[in-house]
Design a protein around this nucleic acid. Structure first.
Lengths: 209, 209
DNA sequence: GGTCAACCTTACTCGAAGTAGGTTACTTGC
DNA sequence: GCAAGTAACCTACTTCGAGTAAGGTTGACC
C-alpha cells in the first residue's frame, strides 16, 4: 500500500547471493517434500522471483539439485578431514572421523537427507554421479586412513573395509538422526565397538564389563 | 501372413500373467534408464499392450515401481531366512545370511539396483516406504539373530549393531557387483572379518583382543 | 448363438519442465 | 545529471509425459 519498503525484502540482488538463496530454498523444499513432488514454480515463488531465473542460473531442475548436493559435499569433506588432523593413533583417528561425520549429519540433517535418501538417483545421471562422488570421497579417506596402519594389506581388503565403514556410517546416521536420545559421540562409540572390537567380543566377553 | 500364430506372441493373456510380464519389463527398463527417464508408453509398447492397461493393473507409475520392489523384497526375505536355518552357531548363522544376501544381489542385480540406487525415493512416499520396509525387514532379522546370543544386551545396542550390519551389506554389495573377481563367499568373508573379528585384529594380529 | 465379463484401444486432459523474447533497475563514463 | 550498457527480472508460451474417459473386441459358458 503505502511504504512496503520497510518490511519488503530486497527485490534485486546480485547473482551470487541469489544463487545461494535459491540453493537454500531448494534444499529445504527438496528435503521436505522430495525431489519429484517439488515444483520449480514453488521454489521460484519462495525466492520471490520467477521461474526462468532458476533456469538461467542452474540450467535445469536436476542442475539445481546437483548444486545443492555439491555444496553439502564440500562441507562434509572439510569437516571430516579436519577432524582427523592431530589424532593420537589409528583408533583415535577413526573415532574422530566418525564423530565429525555424525555431528555433520545432525547439524545438516535437512541437506543430508537429500543424499541419504538418495533423491539424486531419480533426478538423472549427473545428480547420481555427484552423490556417488561423495561416497567415493569418504571411501578414499578411509582407505588412506587404513593404509597408514595396514601397509601390508592387499588393496582389495582395504577397499572392502572402507566400503563397509562408509555403508555402516550412512545407515547408522539415518538411525541416529531419527532418535533424539543418542548423541554423535554415542553413535560413534556404537560403530567403533563393532568395527574395531568386532561382534565376537560382544558375544563372548572375557570380562563381564 | 499365413499362420502368424506360431511366431506371434499371444495377444491376450490372463491378468496375473500380464502383470508378471509388466513387472519384468518395468524392472528391466527402470534398471536400465532409471525411474524418471522411463516412460509408461515405452513399458506398454514393450509389453505389446497399450498404456491404460498398466494403469488398470497398477494404478500409477509409482504403483508399478512399488510392485517391482515388493516382488524383490519377498524373494530376498525368503532367501536370507532360509539360508540361516540349520546354522551351527551364531557365527555360522551370520555368515550364511551374508552369503545368501550377496548371492541374491548378484543373481538379481537388475532388480536390486532399483533398491540400492534408491530409485524409489524420487518416485514418492509409497515407494520409499516399500524400500525402507526391506531394510527394516533385514534389520529385524539381524536383531533377532543377535538377540539369541546376546540376551542381556540393551535393545539400543542391538538396533545399532543391526543397522551397521545392514548398511555395510548394502554398500559392500554395490562394490561387489561392480567387480567380477570377487565371489559371494569372498564378499561375505570380508564382511565377516571386519564385523566379527574387528579392525583391531587386523591392525595388531598378535594381540587377540 | 447370445450375453457377460475380461481384456484392450483410441483419443483425449492436465500439469509441470523448460524457453523465447521483452522489460526494469543498477552501474559507469562523460 | 544523464545516456548507454548490462545484469537482473518478468510474462506468456511450447512441449512432453502422466493419467483418464469412453468405447471396441474376444472368448467362455450356458
Amino acid at each position: 500500500m503505502s511504504t512496503p519498503a520497510e518490511t519488503e525484502r530486497k527485490r534485486r540482488m546480485p547473482r551470487a547471493e541469489r544463487e545461494r538463496q535459491m540453493m537454500a530454498v531448494a534444499e529445504e523444499i527438496f528435503a521436505e517434500r522430495g525431489y519429484q513432488a517439488t515444483g520449480m514454480d514453488e521454489v521460484a515463488e519462495r525466492c520471490g522471483v520467477s521461474k526462468p531465473m532458476i533456469y538461467e542460473y542452474f540450467g535445469s531442475k536436476e542442475g539445481l539439485l546437483v548444486a545443492c548436493v555439491r555444496h553439502a559435499r564440500g562441507q562434509l569433506a572439510t569437516a571430516t578431514t579436519e577432524a582427523v588432523i592431530g589424532a593420537t593413533g589409528p583408533r583415535d583417528a577413526l573415532r574422530r572421523g566418525l564423530v565429525a561425520f555424525f555431528r555433520f549429519t545432525d547439524a545438516h540433517r535437512r541437506a543430508w537427507s537429500l543424499v541419504l535418501r538418495n533423491e539424486a538417483a531419480v533426478a538423472g545421471a549427473a545428480a547420481a554421479a555427484e552423490v556417488e562422488a561423495i561416497r567415493q570421497e569418504q571411501v578414499d579417506i578411509d582407505i588412506a586412513l587404513l593404509s597408514t596402519f595396514l601397509p601390508d594389506a592387499p588393496r582389495t581388503d582395504l577397499e572392502a573395509a572402507a566400503q563397509i565403514v562408509v555403508g555402516a556410517c550412512e545407515r547408522l546416521s539415518l538411525w541416529y538422526v531419527s532418535r533424539d536420545d543418542i548423541t554423535a559421540e554415542q553413535a560413534a562409540d556404537h560403530l567403533m565397538r563393532v568395527l574395531w572390537t568386532g561382534l565376537a567380543a560382544l558375544v563372548a566377553p572375557s570380562t563381564a564389563g
